[in-house]
């Protein structure tokens, strides 16, 4: 039980996928202008991450390893992730056209999001059991959403500040992201390894 808690806390805070591992920067910078969009994106990615981890875990241990085709790991995982993202796109378009419009191109970009593939691969690399894998993915997804929403909140406030001309736009966003990442380094040492 404590193991699972450690994995969860580690994935959310200590080794945050966006702020510590620097994966998934594309939606991090692209969808974080407003908190609602960031939340919507975070939820879409949570769904993709969790289901992808489950399916890829099965694919790895029941298809790739038994047949000795571990070298196909990347391709097989991407195939699974791509299909899941297509599914999520269809559902979102039907359920919330407004969210679909505001996420725009970043929704299909979840397919190539290194955070999702990174999560799937890390899961295998760390030799997690099925339950540990699921908890890890939930933690990673929550951490991703947390980073996105925090950053969106910061950016919404930055909109109202007087920023020097040469810093406006992406420049100040990147600087803020770096500072946020520095802040999260405060969690280092909370969990060993």
């Amino acid at each position: 039980m404590t193991d699972l808690l450690v994995i969860l806390v580690s994935a959310i805070f200590v080794n945050n996928f966006v702020l510590a591992r620097f994966l998934g920067i594309c939606p991090f910078l692209g969808v974080s202008k407003k908190v609602e969009t960031a939340l919507g994106m975070g939820m879409a990615v949570t769904f993709v991450m969790t289901v992808a981890t489950v399916v890829t875990w099965f694919v790895q241990y029941f298809v790739l390893i038994p047949f000795g085709i571990e070298y196909l790991q990347t391709i097989a995982f991407i195939l699974v992730i791509a299909s899941l993202v297509q599914l999520v796109e269809m559902v979102i378009q039907k359920v919330s056209p407004v969210l679909y419009q505001s996420l725009g191109i970043f929704l299909p970009l979840i397919t190539t999001n290194c955070a999702v593939l990174g999560l799937a691969v890390l899961n295998i690399q760390k030799d997690y059991t099925f339950l540990e894998g699921v908890v890890f993915s939930i933690g990673a997804a929550l951490g991703f959403t947390l980073a996105l929403v925090l950053f969106a909140g910061l950016r919404e406030r930055l909109e109202l500040c007087a920023i020097p001309q040469s810093f406006r736009g992406t420049a100040i966003a990147l600087v803020t992201a770096g500072l946020l990442s520095l802040a999260f380094m405060g969690f280092a040492g909370l969990v060993k390894g």
């Binding site: 694919v59 391709i75 195939l79």
Partner: peptide
């Protein structure tokens, strides 16, 4: 053959 079949199957199911 295993490689082709397994990827093919995953693709079909998807």
């Amino acid at each position: 053959l295993a490689a082709i079949l397994s990827l093919g199957c995953i693709g079909m199911i998807a």
